[in-house]
Amino acid sequence: MTAEGARYTVDELAAKVGMSPRNIRAHQTRSLLGPPVRRGRTAYYDDSHVRRLEAIKSLQRQGYNLVAIEAILGVRSPEPVTEALQTLLQRLGREQPGLVHALARHGVLIRGEDGSVHMVRARLMRSVLGLNRAGVHAVPSLQVLSEVLDRLRLIAEDLVRSTSQRIVSATPALRAGAAATWDEVDTRSDALAASMIALLTEAFRVALENFGTTAMPDLIAESAGGAQLHLTGSPTIDNG
């Protein structure tokens, strides 16, 4: 202990909080963790970094992903909303706290300190409004979304791991560990991760588009059991 308080190298910090140095650097890259203070060629962390990492770990144990944690800790700002989305968010905050919590764990929504609900994933929430315009009420749509995200979470983890392994095994430079410094490793990893996510996202979109547009009419007809469909008037956000 010095006059400045406790100081830790990245390895000492990792041992103290039970986290790998690689994860600590990844949190810095995402701005979840502030930079260390450099003394000569050595970077030192302090107890504020320990508290921040413990907060991140606590939120992860509660099931929040890193996008949600970014929003909770103020790293990721809520996105602006239209009047229709604001109406929906206010209603969810009043009537569906459990659903808000479920979606917050996936980083779709976040509840502010004043109890208000804010949007983090704009594209997903706009898709809910799209379903609403097609005649599907908003709350059931969000319940389905929450269930789908729960199912996809494990699938995504397995797919990311298997795809990453294939990419690394097919790239000699990665297998050889050609990067000379941690900064180079972080830069290369971030670029590969962003490209892989884009690849998997578009592949999943293609698969869904190939199946969904042809399957949906058949599924609706099958669900109706051959009976005449009675369509309601224009859908509204306030319906159950």
Rank of each mutant, 00 (worst) to 15 (best):
A3W: 05
E4M: 05
R7Y: 04
T9E: 05
T9D: 02
L13M: 05
L13F: 02
V17T: 06
G18W: 09
S20K: 12
S20R: 07
R22N: 13
Q28R: 15
Q28V: 08
Q28E: 14
Q28S: 07
Q28P: 03
T29C: 02
P35S: 04
R38P: 01
R39M: 11
R41F: 10
T42R: 04
V50I: 11
L53V: 07
I56T: 08
Q60I: 06
R61W: 03
G63R: 06
L66M: 12
I69F: 07
A71R: 01
V75F: 02
R76E: 13
E79R: 15
E79H: 12
E79S: 14
T82Q: 04
T82S: 15
L88R: 00
Q90N: 12
R91E: 12
G93L: 04
R94A: 11
E95A: 09
P97C: 05
V100N: 03
R105G: 01
L109E: 00
L109R: 00
I110R: 12
D114P: 04
V117M: 03
M119N: 10
M119E: 15
A122T: 13
A122S: 15
L124Q: 10
V128L: 02
V128S: 10
G130D: 14
L131M: 12
A134G: 07
H137F: 08
L142S: 08
L145M: 15
S146A: 15
S146Q: 04
L149M: 06
D150P: 00
D150C: 02
L152A: 06
A156E: 14
A156I: 09
A156L: 09
L159H: 10
L159C: 09
L159K: 13
V160D: 07
R161A: 11
S162C: 03
T163A: 15
T163H: 11
V168C: 02
S169Q: 14
R175M: 14
G177E: 10
A178Y: 10
T181S: 14
T187F: 03
D190S: 08
D190Q: 05
A193R: 05
A198N: 11
R205A: 12
G212W: 07
A215R: 13
S223M: 11
S223H: 13
A224G: 06
G225L: 05
L229R: 14
T232D: 13
G233N: 04
S234Q: 13
P235S: 11
P235K: 00
P235L: 10
P235N: 05
I237T: 11
D238V: 11
D238E: 14
D238F: 01
G240R: 06
